[in-house]
Each structure stands twice: as structure tokens, then as C-alpha cells.
Simulated assay, not measured.
Amino acid sequence: MSTETRAAVTIDRRTKRQDPQLHTRKATTGDKVVGGTSHVVMAIWSLVVILPMVWTLIGSFKTTKEIFASPFGLPAEWNFDNYVSAWVDNAFGQMFVNTVIVVGVSLVLVMVLGAMCAYVLARFSLPGSRLIYYLMLAGLTFPVFLAIVPLFFILQGMNLLNTLPGLIITYVAFALPFTVFFLFSFFKSLPYEIQEAAYVDGASEWRTFFTVMLPMAKPGMAAVAIMNFLGLWNQFLLPISLNAEKDNYVLSQGMAAYASSAGYALDFGQMFAAVMITIIPVLIVYILFQRQLQGSVSQGTSK
């Protein structure tokens, strides 16, 4: 550290000692009220979210008789019989595999296509680019249940009705407008100097996008990937309407079919286990990528 820098740091420290208001501010009564109220609301909201999940987790280790006899008590014996029965006997294992295939392939396709579309719309002035962007925005406002009948006949004409590829195509079309809308602002805010420098170094449009611009939009990519994963994993209306083949069921429609078919003879322990099988992957993905999601939100607000 140079002599001038040390002198500047010393002067800054002396200034803070002489005037404490430069780095400290006494909290007012209003600040305390707002802070206390927000903490109370967040605590109540956390309990509303966490307690049902904990109750479902404990219930997944109980029998139906134990659940009705002691809804909030601990199970007499901790075992994974309900999970094994739900996974094997009720075909939730096959449904889980179908869900992973459909959501995984759809997520990869929608992220690649959405990023490429958002990049072109944000970085290039092409005839009709604004119209395409507004059409994407219109896709966000269009209620999905109004498209069920046209989608049904389109997939039927393509011989993709009640198939996993047909469901994948539908998921991609469903998630693409939101992906383009979300990534458009990220690509728009990237500096043009870096793109021009890549061109000067001889990089093609494809190489500039995949090796220079796309890594710079990583926070936005991570955030929209998490949101798309949550939306596609929990999707219910599209598979229940376009995927009537039992061997191709995904978890959301499988759980609904199991609950409706069992009627009053429903095994609630197995049902709770099936719910946990559906929830656990979502929790794992969010826990692993929550830092990227927080980083993208803070980066977006700072811009």
C-alpha cells in the first residue's frame, strides 16, 4: 500500500471517529415497528409453509390407522414400507422416470431455444423482431386451458398424442414465452463492446453467442431454469389432457389418478409417501441452485 493510500485511509478513519453519523444511524421507532412486523409476518409465513410439509413427511412413515388415531403424533415404527409400496406397487417409480425424462428434455430444449431467441431479439435489429417479441409477450397472457382443444388435435394429427415426445413439445411451447421474456433484459444489458471485440478476434456469430455472451448471462439462465423446472415439474393440466396413456403418466397426474381410483380405501400413508417423492427433487434442485437465483435477482435489481 502506498503512502498516499495509507494517508487517505487514516483520514477516512479519523473522520468516522469524529462524526459517527457517517457510518451509523440510530434506528427510529418506525424502523423498529416495520422490522418487527416484517419478522413476525415472515415467521408466520414460514410456519404456514413448513408445518404442512413436516406433517406430510411424518405421515409418510405411518399407517392409515395411525394417521387417523394420532394425526400429529410420531409413528410407532420408522420404516420405508410406504415408500416401497408407492414406488413399486403403485408404479410411482415409472412415473418418476417419465417425469424426469419429460421435464429434463423439455428444460434443455427450452433453455437453448429461449436463450437463442432472446439473444437475437435483444442484440440485433431485424425486420419484425419487435413483433415477434410482442407475440412472445402475448403468449404469457394467453390462458393455457384455452389451447387444450387445439393442442389435442394438433398432437393427434402428428401421431404424438398420449406420448412423451408430444408432451415434451407441449412443455417447450408452454415455457418458451416466459424464458424469452426473462432473458431478453439480461442479453439487452450486456455491453456491446465485448461482442464487438469477439468479432474483431474473428469469432463467428455462433461462437460469440455460446462462448462469450451466454456465459455472461449465467445468472439469468440459472434463475429462469429453476423457475421453468418448478413450473414444468408441477404441471398438471397439460398432461392430464394430452397424456391419457397410463404407462406414460407423470407424477402429477399419477397422484390424481391414484387418489381418485382408491376412493374411500385410499392408503394415506402411501399417498403421503408419493407426495414426498414428488416434493423432494424440487427441494434438492432449489437448495443446490438458490445462490444462483439470489445472485440473479440482486444483479437484476442493481442494473
Rank of each mutant, 00 (worst) to 15 (best):
Y171W: 01
P71G: 11
C117E: 13
F186S: 01
I284K: 08
M53E: 06
P281N: 03
S185V: 06
A217K: 00
S296A: 12
G104W: 01
T56M: 13
F184C: 03
S106C: 05
V282R: 11
F152A: 06
K16H: 12
K62D: 01
F209P: 06
V40F: 15
A76D: 14
V34E: 11
A198K: 03
N228K: 02
V200N: 01
A203W: 00
F236M: 03
M95T: 03
N98A: 10
I277F: 04
I11S: 15
L230A: 07
F72T: 13
S296H: 02
L183S: 01
A225F: 06
T301G: 15
F61Q: 03
Y83P: 04
Q270T: 10
F124D: 10
V250Y: 05
F68P: 05
A274P: 00
G30T: 01
S260F: 13
Q21P: 11
A274I: 07
N79L: 07
L238E: 04
E4D: 12
F272T: 04
A265V: 09
K188R: 13
S204T: 12
M227E: 07
T211M: 15
T163L: 09
V48C: 14
D201R: 03
V97S: 09
L151H: 09
D267I: 05
A175T: 01
L232F: 07
F182A: 13
D201E: 02
F236E: 05
W87D: 08
N82K: 10
V120Q: 04
M111C: 02
I154R: 13
V149K: 15
I284P: 04
A86I: 07
G263W: 00
I169G: 02
P143V: 10
I67Q: 08
A244C: 09
V41R: 11
I287N: 09
S261T: 12
V49A: 14
A217G: 04
S252R: 03
I226H: 08
V250H: 00
G295D: 01
R130C: 11
L183Q: 00
G263N: 06
L113K: 03
E196Y: 02
M158T: 04
G139T: 06
R130I: 15
F61H: 07
G254Y: 02
A76R: 15
F145V: 12
P143G: 09
G220L: 05
L107N: 10
I67A: 00
A259Q: 15
V41M: 13
L251C: 04
P75T: 05
D81Y: 11
L140E: 02
N82D: 05
A69L: 12
P215R: 08
Q195E: 10
M255S: 08
S204Y: 02
V9E: 15
V103T: 05
I148R: 09
V102N: 06
S70C: 08
N82S: 02
S241L: 09
A91E: 14
I154M: 15
V84E: 12
L167C: 00
R14I: 12
R130F: 12
E4S: 14
H23E: 15
G263M: 05
G157K: 05
P20K: 08
G128H: 07
A86K: 01
P165Q: 03
F142S: 12
D31K: 12
I67T: 00
R14F: 14
Q270A: 12
F182W: 13
L242K: 00
L167F: 09
